[in-house]
Structure formats: structure tokens, C-alpha cells
Design a protein around this nucleic acid. Sequence first.
DNA 1: GCAACCGTGTAATTCCTATTACACCTTCGC
DNA 2: GCGAAGGTGTAATAGGAATTACACGGTTGC
Lengths: 216, 216
Amino acid sequence: MTDVAECCRLNRRRQAIVASARALFIEQGYEHTTLGEIVERAGGSLATVYKLFGNKDGLLEAAVLEPASSGDELVRAAMEAGGTPSAILHRIAVSFDAHFLNSETVALFKIVIARSMSDRAFARQFFDRTVARTRSALERMFSTWHDRGLALNGSPGLLAEFFLDQFVSDVHAEAMSHGRGIARTPERLNARTEFFIAAAGLGDRVSNDTTGSDRR
Amino acid sequence: MTDVAECCRLNRRRQAIVASARALFIEQGYEHTTLGEIVERAGGSLATVYKLFGNKDGLLEAAVLEPASSGDELVRAAMEAGGTPSAILHRIAVSFDAHFLNSETVALFKIVIARSMSDRAFARQFFDRTVARTRSALERMFSTWHDRGLALNGSPGLLAEFFLDQFVSDVHAEAMSHGRGIARTPERLNARTEFFIAAAGLGDRVSNDTTGSDRR
DNA sequence: GCAACCGTGTAATTCCTATTACACCTTCGC
DNA sequence: GCGAAGGTGTAATAGGAATTACACGGTTGC
């Protein structure tokens, strides 16, 4: 019971500090956020921060790396929902757009890129956990379709990159232009996805022609 | 005249300071470069920096914004060299790859993104001068081809975005993974370009057969 | 119930760097 | 040549923020 209480207290404090740090880093950036501000908002104290995370860098890693989620779960969810490749890709596009391009995620990318100048390993870790893993998930998806006999106009790796590049590029644009660089509308997203589907050779013609194929 | 002499001396000092600042910013980032280091390498003095640029921010703008070049000149050069759309696109791909993905340019993007957290206008200015302008140049190119009667599988704007996204995305990957994220080879570049050309409907079939068979 | 202990909060400490103030020297008009 | 003007170099100034040292209070084991 006491251990639980201690643990809970510590964990709650830790959670509060990480949440506060995350919010402030996202809002102001890493360099321009002081540990004082973080503990002021979290309600903890400086000593606690140093006990839990060692130094400011450790806190950054905890605040940024821990919640770094990749899109592979989105890919899996979209595939499990079933339907034609075209439908699946449309679904992925919508979820990627929502996931990668909300302001928090964009801010996180900005923080990591800023930090990458002095801490390369940190940046690469983030990249591996987000973009690279998502790319792999997409590649596996295209491979699966390929193995099922769908004729793709390119290797799974190439298609995965091409598909993902749009979103990465949008993140980049958003990071620098803050919404004024590109007008991101559902129509635009739809048109881009349609274009990709046709380019990959996954258009309706193909999926409708598979009347006798064993989908299940 | 005296103005010329003054101007020349001042200009040379200015050039030296800007070059030094640029090199150090690229090497260490903006925040981790001190004005002392800059003047030490440039040979000038702190007072000169403040007289010429006002403060550190002004020096950053001079060092980053002035030499910011977009890819529109590369597009123009590739078009003037003539040939089929396919040949032109391959040429642009090679020059874009060389231009956007050398380490200096990538470092510049990183600096701007880092700064974008506290100075949005600066980042947008850089974005407008590089990515946005390049996108416009590509869009004009596709528009020209469209006006000449080529059947494109998408609007000029869409094609421009799709083509450019690859390179922007590569810059992003390079910024975070430092060469270990993607193996950029000439073969990969070629395959990607070929894929795009086929997707856009600019393959050899089309370009060799521009007489009037627009049956899709 | 008491004393030790560990997490917590506060107050220095220390270093770094942007910015400024001041002294010097080159250059130019006359 | 000479005096002034303004660029140039150096030595403070000042402020901020990471890190550390120290004092406090609740909790636990005996």
C-alpha cells in the first residue's frame, strides 16, 4: 500500500512534469522553455526534475520520445477495416492527414529538427520511431497486395515512399509556413490519393475486375 | 569617391561576417553559435556586427535569406535545354537532388525550422523563397505542356506538388536521420522519376505520339 | 511514539553570451 | 600634414537560466 502510494505519487508527479514539459516545448520550443516554467506549471519542484530525468535533455527525451507514435497502427487499422486497396488507401490518407498534420505533431517535428543540430542520435531515434516505421508498414501493405497477385506499377518500397512523401512534405510545409503555404482541403487530399491510386495501378478498374478473386 | 571606398571596405567586411556567420550557423546552429565566434573567424569586431546588422537576428536574416535560392532557375535551365518532357523531368530530378540535398541546404532548412518556433515570419519568408517558388515554377512548366496539348493525368498544380514532395520529403529525412534514413542512389532517383513520369501520363508513348490520339 | 529516510521545495551558485560603452586608429577633406 | 569623423577593437554590463546545495515535512520501521 505504501509502495503503491509512493509509486503513484511519484508517477503522478512524473506524468505532470512530462505533460507540462511537452506542452511548453510544443508551445515555445526547447531552448526557449526554462525548467522554472515547467515546474511552475506542473506544480513540482526543480529537484524532482533532476532526480527523475537527470537534466533538461533527459526531460526532453521523456517528453518527446515516449509519446512518439508512428503511423503503423493507422495502417493496420485501415487494412483490418477491409475493402478494396483504393478504399484502404483513402482511409489511410485521411488518418495520416489527421495524425501527422495536427499542430502538436508538427511542433514535435520542429523541436526534433531543431535539436538534431546538436544531438543527432536523438533526432534519428525520433525519425526511426515515426517516419521510418510508418514507411515499413506501408511497404508491408503493398507487399501483401503484391503477393495476392495485384499488379503494382512499382516496387512496394517505391510506392510506400511515394505515398508517405506527400505527408512528410506537408509536415515540412506546415512547419515553415504555418498554414499559409498550402490550403489543405479534403478535396485536395482526395485528389492526391486518387492520383496515387491510379499511378500505382490500384484504380477501380483493377479492383472491380477481381470479381472472381478470393478476397476472403 | 569616398562613398565607393567606404562602401567597398564596408562591403568586404560585411561579406566576411556574413560568410563566417553562415558557415558557423550551418555547422553549429543558430543558438549554439556566439557572436564572438563569428567575429573571431571573420576577423572583424563585435561593434561592426551591431552597426551593420543591428543584432543577432539581423545577422541571421542576412546570412540565411540573402543566399536563399529556389529551384525555379533549375527548372528554367532544364526546359531551355529542350527534349521530351521525360528528358526534362529527369534533368530536373538530378539537379533538384543535387541542389536541395547537399548538406548545406539541409542545414539551412534545419536552422529555419528551428527558428520558426520563435519567428514565424522569418520561416515563411524562407519557405516562400525556396519551396513555394519552386512549386510555382514546376506548375508553370506543366501548364505549358498542357497548353501544348499534352494529356496530363492531373492538374498542373497537383503534378507540381507530387513531383516536388519527393525532394522536400528527402530533405526532411536527411535533416533527421543524417544519411542513415534513406539510401539515396542514382538508381533510386531514376526509378522515382520514371514512376512519376508514367503516373503523370508523360511516358514515351505519349511524348512520341502527340499527334492527336488523346484516348485514355 | 520516535528517529531515520526519502521525496520535496527554496535559495544560492556559476557560467555563458547578447549587448553596450569606451578608447584607438585609419582615412579623408582641406 | 592636420583635425575631424567614423569605423574598429576591447573591456565592461547585465540578465537569464541550468545546475547544485541546503533546509523542510511527511512517512516508515522498530
